[in-house]
Amino acid sequence: MRVGLMSDPGRVALTWLMALSISGLAACDAGHAANDLTSRSRPVIGSLETPLRVLQMNLCNSGRAACYTGGRAVSMAVALVHQHRPGMVSLNEVCRDDVRVLKQAMSATRPAGGIASAFAPAKDRAGQAPVLCQNGQEFGDAVLVMVPSPTPGVRSVTGVYPVQDSSDVEGRVWACIDLPKRFLACATHTASTNATVALEQCRYLIGSVVPGISHRAAGTPVILGADLNLTSRGSPSALACLPGGYQRTADDAVQNVVSSPSIEVRSRSVIDMQGTTDHPGLLVDLALPHQ
Protein backbone atom coordinates (compact mmCIF):
# COMPACT_ATOMS: atom_id res chain seq x y z
CA MET A 1 0.00 0.00 0.00
CA ARG A 2 1.33 3.43 -0.96
CA VAL A 3 0.60 6.46 1.22
CA GLY A 4 0.83 9.85 -0.47
CA LEU A 5 2.08 13.04 1.17
CA MET A 6 -0.60 15.02 2.98
CA SER A 7 -0.46 18.52 4.32
CA ASP A 8 -3.11 17.99 7.02
CA PRO A 9 -1.38 16.82 10.29
CA GLY A 10 -4.61 15.25 11.56
CA ARG A 11 -4.98 13.10 8.47
CA VAL A 12 -1.31 12.03 8.73
CA ALA A 13 -1.77 10.88 12.32
CA LEU A 14 -4.97 9.00 11.43
CA THR A 15 -3.20 7.21 8.58
CA TRP A 16 -0.37 6.04 10.83
CA LEU A 17 -2.82 4.80 13.50
CA MET A 18 -4.71 2.77 10.89
CA ALA A 19 -1.46 1.26 9.56
CA LEU A 20 -0.36 0.24 13.05
CA SER A 21 -3.74 -1.38 13.74
CA ILE A 22 -3.63 -3.40 10.52
CA SER A 23 -0.07 -4.64 11.13
CA GLY A 24 -0.98 -5.75 14.64
CA LEU A 25 -3.93 -7.84 13.39
CA ALA A 26 -1.84 -9.51 10.68
CA ALA A 27 0.28 -11.40 13.22
CA CYS A 28 -2.58 -13.33 14.84
CA ASP A 29 -3.35 -15.95 12.21
CA ALA A 30 -0.75 -18.75 12.48
CA GLY A 31 1.85 -19.66 15.09
CA HIS A 32 3.00 -17.77 18.14
CA ALA A 33 6.42 -16.15 18.15
CA ALA A 34 8.33 -16.71 21.36
CA ASN A 35 10.76 -13.96 20.38
CA ASP A 36 8.53 -12.00 18.04
CA LEU A 37 10.53 -9.19 16.47
CA THR A 38 9.46 -9.66 12.85
CA SER A 39 5.95 -11.02 12.55
CA ARG A 40 4.20 -7.66 12.78
CA SER A 41 6.26 -5.55 10.42
CA ARG A 42 9.08 -5.56 7.93
CA PRO A 43 12.39 -3.99 8.98
CA VAL A 44 13.44 -0.58 7.78
CA ILE A 45 16.03 -1.13 5.04
CA GLY A 46 18.47 1.43 3.70
CA SER A 47 18.41 2.46 0.05
CA LEU A 48 21.57 0.44 -0.68
CA GLU A 49 20.27 -2.77 0.92
CA THR A 50 17.81 -5.47 -0.17
CA PRO A 51 15.50 -7.03 2.45
CA LEU A 52 15.10 -10.80 2.62
CA ARG A 53 12.91 -12.71 5.04
CA VAL A 54 13.99 -16.32 5.68
CA LEU A 55 11.79 -19.06 7.17
CA GLN A 56 13.57 -22.23 8.39
CA MET A 57 11.49 -25.28 9.37
CA ASN A 58 12.02 -28.96 10.18
CA LEU A 59 8.62 -30.49 9.38
CA CYS A 60 9.25 -34.11 10.48
CA ASN A 61 6.93 -35.29 7.70
CA SER A 62 8.44 -38.66 6.72
CA GLY A 63 5.57 -40.56 8.31
CA ARG A 64 8.10 -42.85 10.00
CA ALA A 65 9.24 -40.80 13.01
CA ALA A 66 7.42 -40.36 16.31
CA CYS A 67 7.13 -36.61 15.68
CA TYR A 68 4.98 -37.14 12.53
CA THR A 69 1.52 -35.56 12.85
CA GLY A 70 -0.25 -36.78 9.73
CA GLY A 71 0.78 -33.90 7.47
CA ARG A 72 -0.34 -31.15 9.83
CA ALA A 73 3.19 -29.68 9.82
CA VAL A 74 2.92 -28.96 6.09
CA SER A 75 -0.43 -27.22 6.57
CA MET A 76 1.12 -25.18 9.36
CA ALA A 77 4.05 -24.27 7.11
CA VAL A 78 1.66 -23.12 4.37
CA ALA A 79 -0.15 -20.89 6.88
CA LEU A 80 3.15 -19.37 8.02
CA VAL A 81 4.20 -18.67 4.43
CA HIS A 82 0.91 -16.88 3.79
CA GLN A 83 1.25 -14.87 7.01
CA HIS A 84 4.93 -13.90 6.91
CA ARG A 85 5.59 -13.85 3.13
CA PRO A 86 9.22 -15.06 3.26
CA GLY A 87 11.48 -14.60 0.26
CA MET A 88 13.39 -17.80 1.16
CA VAL A 89 12.17 -21.00 2.81
CA SER A 90 14.49 -23.82 3.92
CA LEU A 91 13.01 -27.20 4.82
CA ASN A 92 14.20 -30.35 6.57
CA GLU A 93 12.53 -33.77 6.82
CA VAL A 94 10.06 -33.26 3.99
CA CYS A 95 8.70 -35.43 1.19
CA ARG A 96 9.23 -34.35 -2.41
CA ASP A 97 5.59 -33.33 -2.90
CA ASP A 98 5.74 -31.09 0.19
CA VAL A 99 8.10 -28.86 -1.80
CA ARG A 100 5.44 -28.43 -4.50
CA VAL A 101 2.85 -27.48 -1.86
CA LEU A 102 5.14 -24.87 -0.28
CA LYS A 103 6.12 -23.58 -3.72
CA GLN A 104 2.45 -22.95 -4.49
CA ALA A 105 2.02 -21.18 -1.14
CA MET A 106 4.95 -18.86 -1.87
CA SER A 107 3.65 -18.16 -5.37
CA ALA A 108 0.29 -17.13 -3.95
CA THR A 109 1.90 -14.45 -1.78
CA ARG A 110 3.79 -12.78 -4.66
CA PRO A 111 2.24 -13.80 -8.00
CA ALA A 112 4.39 -11.34 -10.01
CA GLY A 113 7.60 -13.34 -9.52
CA GLY A 114 8.69 -16.95 -9.81
CA ILE A 115 9.88 -19.56 -7.30
CA ALA A 116 13.17 -21.44 -7.69
CA SER A 117 13.54 -24.66 -5.69
CA ALA A 118 16.08 -27.38 -5.02
CA PHE A 119 15.36 -30.73 -3.33
CA ALA A 120 17.99 -33.23 -2.17
CA PRO A 121 16.79 -36.72 -1.16
CA ALA A 122 18.62 -38.24 1.77
CA LYS A 123 20.48 -41.45 0.94
CA ASP A 124 19.93 -44.88 2.42
CA ARG A 125 23.51 -45.60 3.46
CA ALA A 126 23.07 -49.35 3.03
CA GLY A 127 22.28 -49.16 -0.68
CA GLN A 128 22.69 -45.47 -1.61
CA ALA A 129 19.10 -45.37 -2.84
CA PRO A 130 16.99 -42.36 -1.80
CA VAL A 131 15.35 -42.57 1.61
CA LEU A 132 11.58 -42.76 1.17
CA CYS A 133 8.71 -41.28 3.14
CA GLN A 134 5.97 -43.66 4.26
CA ASN A 135 3.92 -42.53 1.24
CA GLY A 136 6.65 -43.70 -1.16
CA GLN A 137 7.98 -40.25 -2.08
CA GLU A 138 11.62 -39.30 -1.68
CA PHE A 139 12.53 -37.80 1.70
CA GLY A 140 15.06 -35.03 2.27
CA ASP A 141 15.84 -31.31 2.45
CA ALA A 142 14.80 -28.40 0.26
CA VAL A 143 15.27 -24.68 -0.32
CA LEU A 144 12.88 -22.32 -2.11
CA VAL A 145 13.53 -18.72 -3.15
CA MET A 146 11.44 -15.93 -4.67
CA VAL A 147 12.95 -15.00 -8.03
CA PRO A 148 12.21 -11.81 -10.00
CA SER A 149 11.27 -12.47 -13.60
CA PRO A 150 13.33 -12.80 -15.65
CA THR A 151 16.42 -14.04 -13.77
CA PRO A 152 18.72 -15.91 -16.17
CA GLY A 153 21.28 -18.42 -14.99
CA VAL A 154 19.45 -19.70 -11.88
CA ARG A 155 20.57 -23.22 -11.06
CA SER A 156 20.12 -25.80 -8.32
CA VAL A 157 23.04 -27.79 -6.91
CA THR A 158 22.67 -30.74 -4.52
CA GLY A 159 25.01 -33.29 -3.03
CA VAL A 160 25.80 -35.93 -0.43
CA TYR A 161 28.38 -35.30 2.30
CA PRO A 162 31.60 -37.31 1.93
CA VAL A 163 31.70 -37.68 5.73
CA GLN A 164 28.83 -39.62 7.32
CA ASP A 165 28.18 -41.25 10.68
CA SER A 166 28.49 -45.01 10.19
CA SER A 167 25.77 -45.60 12.81
CA ASP A 168 23.25 -43.37 11.00
CA VAL A 169 21.12 -45.15 8.37
CA GLU A 170 20.44 -41.80 6.69
CA GLY A 171 23.11 -40.31 4.45
CA ARG A 172 22.98 -36.55 4.99
CA VAL A 173 22.71 -34.13 2.06
CA TRP A 174 22.60 -30.46 1.09
CA ALA A 175 20.64 -28.43 -1.47
CA CYS A 176 21.53 -24.97 -2.87
CA ILE A 177 20.12 -22.46 -5.36
CA ASP A 178 22.59 -20.19 -7.14
CA LEU A 179 21.01 -16.83 -8.00
CA PRO A 180 23.56 -14.96 -10.15
CA LYS A 181 24.29 -11.41 -8.98
CA ARG A 182 21.98 -11.88 -5.97
CA PHE A 183 22.91 -14.57 -3.44
CA LEU A 184 23.44 -18.28 -2.82
CA ALA A 185 20.68 -20.01 -0.83
CA CYS A 186 21.25 -23.41 0.81
CA ALA A 187 19.53 -25.88 3.13
CA THR A 188 20.84 -28.88 5.04
CA HIS A 189 20.18 -31.22 7.96
CA THR A 190 23.42 -32.50 9.45
CA ALA A 191 23.92 -35.72 11.42
CA SER A 192 21.79 -36.13 14.53
CA THR A 193 23.69 -39.14 15.86
CA ASN A 194 27.20 -37.68 16.15
CA ALA A 195 27.94 -34.01 16.86
CA THR A 196 31.52 -34.29 15.59
CA VAL A 197 30.27 -35.56 12.23
CA ALA A 198 27.61 -32.82 12.16
CA LEU A 199 30.36 -30.25 12.65
CA GLU A 200 32.47 -31.75 9.85
CA GLN A 201 29.47 -31.71 7.50
CA CYS A 202 28.71 -28.08 8.33
CA ARG A 203 32.33 -27.11 7.73
CA TYR A 204 32.40 -28.99 4.44
CA LEU A 205 29.27 -27.23 3.18
CA ILE A 206 30.40 -23.71 4.08
CA GLY A 207 34.13 -24.21 3.51
CA SER A 208 34.14 -26.35 0.34
CA VAL A 209 30.74 -26.56 -1.36
CA VAL A 210 29.79 -22.88 -1.09
CA PRO A 211 33.08 -21.50 -2.51
CA GLY A 212 32.88 -24.04 -5.33
CA ILE A 213 29.40 -22.91 -6.36
CA SER A 214 29.99 -19.16 -6.01
CA HIS A 215 33.58 -19.09 -7.35
CA ARG A 216 32.53 -16.88 -10.27
CA ALA A 217 31.82 -13.96 -7.98
CA ALA A 218 33.92 -13.60 -4.85
CA GLY A 219 31.95 -12.06 -2.03
CA THR A 220 28.59 -13.47 -3.17
CA PRO A 221 26.17 -13.28 -0.20
CA VAL A 222 25.47 -16.73 1.25
CA ILE A 223 22.43 -17.79 3.30
CA LEU A 224 22.03 -21.23 4.86
CA GLY A 225 18.84 -22.42 6.54
CA ALA A 226 19.53 -25.56 8.53
CA ASP A 227 18.87 -27.96 11.34
CA LEU A 228 22.55 -28.34 12.24
CA ASN A 229 22.03 -30.56 15.28
CA LEU A 230 24.60 -28.29 16.96
CA THR A 231 24.02 -25.62 19.60
CA SER A 232 26.13 -22.65 20.66
CA ARG A 233 26.63 -24.16 24.12
CA GLY A 234 27.27 -27.72 22.94
CA SER A 235 30.56 -29.51 22.46
CA PRO A 236 31.43 -29.10 19.70
CA SER A 237 29.73 -25.74 19.37
CA ALA A 238 27.79 -24.65 16.29
CA LEU A 239 29.99 -21.56 16.26
CA ALA A 240 33.00 -23.76 15.44
CA CYS A 241 31.45 -24.36 12.02
CA LEU A 242 31.50 -20.72 10.96
CA PRO A 243 34.31 -19.02 9.02
CA GLY A 244 35.38 -15.54 10.10
CA GLY A 245 32.66 -12.95 9.73
CA TYR A 246 29.79 -15.43 9.27
CA GLN A 247 26.80 -15.00 11.58
CA ARG A 248 24.52 -17.60 13.15
CA THR A 249 20.94 -16.69 14.05
CA ALA A 250 19.30 -19.53 15.97
CA ASP A 251 16.35 -20.64 18.09
CA ASP A 252 18.57 -21.29 21.14
CA ALA A 253 18.74 -24.92 19.97
CA VAL A 254 19.44 -26.52 16.57
CA GLN A 255 17.45 -24.41 14.06
CA ASN A 256 19.75 -21.96 12.28
CA VAL A 257 20.00 -19.27 9.65
CA VAL A 258 23.68 -18.75 8.81
CA SER A 259 24.68 -15.69 6.78
CA SER A 260 27.93 -14.46 5.24
CA PRO A 261 29.78 -11.29 6.34
CA SER A 262 28.17 -8.86 3.87
CA ILE A 263 24.66 -9.58 5.22
CA GLU A 264 23.13 -7.75 8.17
CA VAL A 265 20.78 -9.58 10.54
CA ARG A 266 17.90 -7.26 11.39
CA SER A 267 15.65 -9.44 13.57
CA ARG A 268 14.45 -12.95 14.36
CA SER A 269 11.33 -14.74 15.60
CA VAL A 270 11.09 -18.22 17.08
CA ILE A 271 7.70 -19.60 16.04
CA ASP A 272 5.59 -22.08 17.99
CA MET A 273 4.56 -24.77 15.47
CA GLN A 274 1.65 -25.75 17.75
CA GLY A 275 2.59 -29.39 18.13
CA THR A 276 2.67 -30.15 14.40
CA THR A 277 6.41 -31.01 14.51
CA ASP A 278 9.07 -31.42 17.18
CA HIS A 279 10.97 -28.21 16.28
CA PRO A 280 9.96 -24.54 16.27
CA GLY A 281 10.08 -22.46 13.13
CA LEU A 282 12.74 -19.77 12.80
CA LEU A 283 11.97 -16.49 11.01
CA VAL A 284 14.88 -14.12 10.30
CA ASP A 285 14.92 -10.74 8.55
CA LEU A 286 18.14 -9.99 6.69
CA ALA A 287 19.49 -7.00 4.75
CA LEU A 288 21.59 -7.97 1.73
CA PRO A 289 23.98 -5.56 0.03
CA HIS A 290 22.35 -4.08 -3.05
CA GLN A 291 23.80 -5.51 -6.26
Rank of each mutant, 00 (worst) to 15 (best):
M1F: 13
L5T: 11
S7I: 13
P9K: 09
P9H: 10
A13H: 10
W16C: 12
W16T: 14
L20R: 15
L20K: 13
I22C: 07
G24Q: 12
A27L: 09
C28S: 13
A30N: 06
A30V: 12
G31D: 00
G31C: 06
H32V: 14
H32I: 11
A33M: 07
A33S: 14
A34Y: 10
A34M: 13
T38H: 07
P51H: 03
L52E: 07
L52F: 04
L55Q: 05
Q56N: 11
M57H: 06
L59D: 01
G63Q: 02
C67T: 10
A77T: 04
L80Q: 10
L80V: 07
V81I: 15
H82F: 09
H82S: 12
H84F: 14
H84P: 04
R85M: 12
P86V: 09
C95A: 14
R96I: 00
R96G: 00
D98I: 02
D98T: 06
V99C: 03
V101I: 15
V101M: 09
K103G: 15
K103S: 15
S107M: 13
T109L: 00
A112V: 12
G113E: 06
I115M: 05
A116V: 08
F119Y: 04
A126F: 04
P130V: 07
N135C: 04
G136R: 12
D141K: 03
V143R: 09
V143C: 05
V145H: 00
M146Q: 15
V147M: 06
P148Y: 02
T151M: 08
T158M: 02
Y161K: 09
V163T: 15
S166Y: 13
D168K: 11
V169R: 15
A175V: 03
C176D: 02
D178N: 13
D178C: 04
A185F: 03
A185K: 05
H189F: 02
A191N: 15
T196Q: 13
T196G: 13
V197P: 07
L205H: 05
L205S: 06
I206K: 03
S208F: 11
V209N: 03
V209S: 03
V210G: 05
P211Y: 06
G212Y: 04
S214F: 03
R216G: 15
R216P: 03
A217T: 15
A217E: 13
A218H: 05
T220H: 01
T220Y: 03
P221E: 05
I223G: 08
L224E: 01
L224M: 04
L224T: 05
L230Q: 05
L230H: 00
R233V: 13
L239Y: 00
A240W: 06
A240E: 09
P243H: 07
G244W: 08
G245W: 05
Y246G: 07
R248Y: 07
R248V: 06
A250R: 11
D251I: 04
Q255S: 11
Q255N: 13
N256D: 12
P261Q: 00
S262M: 05
I263H: 01
I263V: 11
V265F: 04
V265Q: 11
R266M: 14
S269T: 06
V270L: 06
V270N: 01
I271R: 02
T277Q: 01
D278N: 05
V284C: 08
H290D: 11
Q291P: 15
